[in-house]
Design a protein around this nucleic acid. Structure first.
Lengths: 245, 245
DNA sequence: ATTTTTATGTGTTTAATTTACACAACAAAA
DNA sequence: TTTTGTTGTGTAAATTAAACACATAAAAAT
């Protein structure tokens, strides 16, 4: 919204809405739902609070917006401070504003979610020893409205995964079809038919099959694939292609 | 995000993120993208600013979040102050935070969109004479990032209209199939096949065909329908039905 | 050497959904 | 009684989604 140079008494409805007081200022926080995938399960990264209020309880990572940055930058900073990572997929989710959501002080929080590949960005990248990955269904009770944030993040992730190629953000550069299917099954929380899944993925024609095999899980080995981002973007650009699983 | 009782010097990364300063407080605004439908075209409601900065330019309606309300309530209040309407469909859209988005003062704005039926809620409900409905494609250049907000609102509305029965919020209680189709064509900005559209709508089985006809547009007259909200909700509840157009 | 084990890789048939498409009926106005 | 503009209706073809089973590879065990 737009702000008059100085607060003034409302003379009409228009300016009445644009009247504000110093004490209407609030603290704006950013909380991050960090999703990770370890080739088998979808996880979220949580920390144990070492300060009041709610010290000792688990929560999302978060921080406050600073005067000289926008929310995206704040979210990137918060994530980077915790994990040391940069160049991570992040997306604004929703803004939470219940008056008493934080019993300590009036705070509005803008939730973001991030997608990272747990294995490529090792655990030792995590800068806080009180941070831990939790399987989605084993996440503990969190402070404030953080559980609500996670629920919304999951449903946003499910929708995104079906309509955009963001699953690859959660996988290493090279992955097997089985890993990709495991990822989708974790995100969607349901089993998929192997042949239909592979047929569908192949019909999208955005993966490159390598000559290389992953031998870690089966005796036969499984071919590795990479997501061809350039090809995908070209298809979007030129043919109005849209990724739909 | 969670707040320590008092600001303190960061001793570790965890508390570093939870360190804030008085001057990090910001003003939080709410801006409303108000969509209306007049049986033919999709429109948005804009006002001409009568205060600085950008006095005389068109903008969305908006206002500031007050200490004792949450964002949904602020959006409802802002809409009600302008239009006198209540019980309107509203949904939080996105939070805009570019540092210099408002040249006057650091302000973060949470955009909401609202859906109202222009005819049922007459123009005389509008409390500001500088407010006006604009056809979507005739909307003027707006202040700040308001045009960006509208673009995002349109794409959200398109997605919602395809997957939830929110179109009916834009129509009067009773409407013809043609009006419903016009609405969808306006929202999606493309022509639809009449027979396929009707077949699809009928297959959803959530409309009730009345014995009454609308005689205003054709000599033959067109049957009126109403959306059976209870039936819809029962189907969702009992059969996991989901509205997909 | 042979057998066992375990995950990989591959196609077809059927069902469901979506798309394309044209003309008669109505009733007021001319 | 003819003209006009809008309503209302069904089917065939094409596309997409769903169901479904077995041979192969290669290491490990015998």
């Amino acid at each position: 919204m737009e702000i008059p140079k100085e607060a003034k008494v409302a003379k009409d409805i228009n300016s009445q809405l644009n009247f504000y007081q110093k004490e209407d200022q609030v603290l704006l926080a950013v909380d991050c739902i960090i999703f990770g995938f370890d080739k088998t399960n979808l996880k979220i990264l949580l920390i144990k609070r070492n300060f009041e209020p709610e010290k000792g309880k688990w929560s999302l990572i978060g921080g406050f917006l600073k005067k000289n940055e926008n929310l995206d930058q704040a979210a990137i900073r918060v994530l980077n401070t915790l994990t040391g990572l940069s160049d991570i997929y992040m997306e604004q989710l929703y803004t939470y504003s219940k008056v008493d959501r934080d019993p300590g002080q009036r705070t509005i929080s803008v939730a973001y979610f991030a997608l990272i590949d747990v294995d490529s960005h090792q655990f030792d990248g995590i800068q806080i020893d009180s941070a831990r990955w939790f399987d989605l269904d084993e996440a503990p009770e969190l402070i404030f409205d953080h559980n609500e944030m996670i629920r919304k993040a999951i449903s946003r992730l499910q929708r995104r995964a079906m309509t955009m190629p963001i699953g690859f953000e959660l996988l290493p550069e090279k992955f097997t079809m089985r890993q990709l299917q495991n990822l989708y099954e974790s995100i969607l929380d349901k089993k998929l038919d192997k042949r239909n899944f592979i047929n569908k993925i192949n019909s999208l024609d955005v993966l490159v099959k390598l000559d290389e095999k992953d031998m870690t899980v089966s005796r036969k080995g499984a071919y590795l694939y990479v997501f061809d981002k350039e090809k995908y973007e070209k298809k979007v650009e030129e043919d109005g292609f849209s990724f739909k699983l």
